[in-house]
Amino acid sequence: MSNRWSINITPAERAARIIIGGAGAVVGIVLLVGATSTLAVALELLLVLAGLDLVVTGALGHCPLYARLGHVPASLKGRTS
């Protein structure tokens, strides 16, 4: 398996990303229903997308930005998964 897809997020961070991302996506959707201006729609769509990104990266355990920066948490160093 390529390093590109290796797990580079700790279990605690994965859980936090899923919870916070899910909440952000839900709040964005709720706010989007009552949006009255173009700016509000754009910002709420960004909130939904950011939330979904957190959910996906948390579920997969891989953050492309961390990989690009070469960041690996100390507790995950040496793992091959």
Rank of each mutant, 00 (worst) to 15 (best):
32 L>I: 07
63 C>L: 08
16 A>P: 00
68 R>E: 15
17 R>C: 04
40 A>W: 10
78 G>H: 09
43 L>E: 05
38 T>P: 09
12 A>D: 11
32 L>N: 07
57 T>I: 14
74 A>M: 09
60 L>K: 13
41 V>S: 02
35 A>D: 05
35 A>C: 04
49 L>I: 14
31 L>A: 12
6 S>Q: 10
13 E>K: 06
56 V>D: 03
74 A>V: 13
41 V>C: 00
14 R>E: 01
13 E>N: 11
28 G>V: 07
76 L>P: 05
1 M>I: 10
33 V>K: 09
19 I>N: 00
75 S>W: 06
39 L>N: 10
44 E>Q: 15
77 K>A: 15
19 I>C: 03
22 G>R: 03
37 S>T: 15
64 P>K: 05
1 M>P: 06
73 P>N: 10
66 Y>E: 06
42 A>W: 14
67 A>D: 11
50 A>H: 08
40 A>I: 09
41 V>N: 01
40 A>Y: 08
56 V>I: 15
47 L>R: 02
69 L>H: 12
58 G>E: 05
26 V>T: 12
51 G>H: 02
2 S>F: 15
43 L>G: 00
74 A>W: 09
59 A>W: 13
10 T>G: 00
48 V>P: 01
21 G>Y: 03
42 A>E: 14
61 G>T: 03
51 G>V: 04
43 L>M: 12
9 I>F: 01
16 A>T: 01
31 L>F: 12
60 L>P: 04
8 N>Q: 06
71 H>V: 15
11 P>A: 05
34 G>N: 09
50 A>R: 04
27 V>E: 02
53 D>L: 07
28 G>H: 09
56 V>M: 11
10 T>A: 01
71 H>P: 07
69 L>E: 10
8 N>H: 00
25 A>H: 02
57 T>W: 09
47 L>M: 14
17 R>W: 01
62 H>I: 09
56 V>P: 03
3 N>R: 10
63 C>D: 08
24 G>I: 02
55 V>F: 05
38 T>E: 15
32 L>D: 07
30 V>W: 09
64 P>N: 10
41 V>E: 04
64 P>A: 12
51 G>M: 02
53 D>V: 11
25 A>L: 06
14 R>P: 00
49 L>S: 06
